[in-house]
Amino acid sequence: MFEARLTSAATLKKVLEAVKELLNEASFDCSDSGIQLQAMDNSHVSLVSLTLRSDGFDKYRCDRSLTMGMNLASMSKILKCANNDDTVTIKAQDDADTVTFVFESKKQEKISDYEMKLMNLDQEHLGIPETDFSCVIRMPSVEFARIVRDLAQFGETVLICCTKEGVKFSVSGDVGSANVKLAQTNNFDKEEESVSIEMQEPVSLSFACQYLISFTKATPLSPRVQLSMSSNVPLVVEYEIAELGYIRYYLAPKIED
């Protein structure tokens, strides 16, 4: 028996919004410790890694580890039927071929359940090596989303250059070029608005704007985002999900011909 309950369906809706642009379907691995999802997009350029810890749920029970392959478009249709403040419970029997979502309104006057067929997804698990990153940038997630959206209008590739002074995002295309420089702030009063950089050595890497835009769909999950970069390894874009876990996106760089 598997059962996981969250008092606010809004969180699950935001999690799904954060993954469904990159993935059509995904396996949710459920165990004692929580729910994990790891999948690459179809083109194998980006990878989504989601962890929802069992202690972050209002109720969590997982008698036997199980993998639930879900079509994310179908899951999205179901979650649209929940109000943001509904309690959501995800249920499955051991070895089941369906999963059930139960939505309960705050006053319990409305209870709905939606059963969805599970899929057999033959997804391989990837070992992600631990990396000591040359640069780790922390900034407001809204600011990152804004920069990516603004710059993507002018080109397909963004060059991210990080030094100890700050981080520069640059794009060039048919129209011309655009640069956004963010200096490191020492804004201790408003930590949420600060830009901080931990740098071992400067890094310059190019990435496809289209993927970064997809990653920023996670913005509603967290006020902060962390970008980790080292030369010639994938970028890691991480959003913490308060008291529940995190979503990390890995993006392979673009390399000059």
């Binding site: 690459m40 194998h44 980006s46 990878l47 992600i128 090596p129 190019s206 890995y250 392979a252 673009k254």
Partner: peptide
């Protein structure tokens, strides 16, 4: 122009 690299080379299948 820059070429998009795939992730496969960076991670190993476990």
């Amino acid at each position: 122009t820059a070429t998009q690299v795939r992730l496969d080379g960076f991670f190993t299948v476990v």
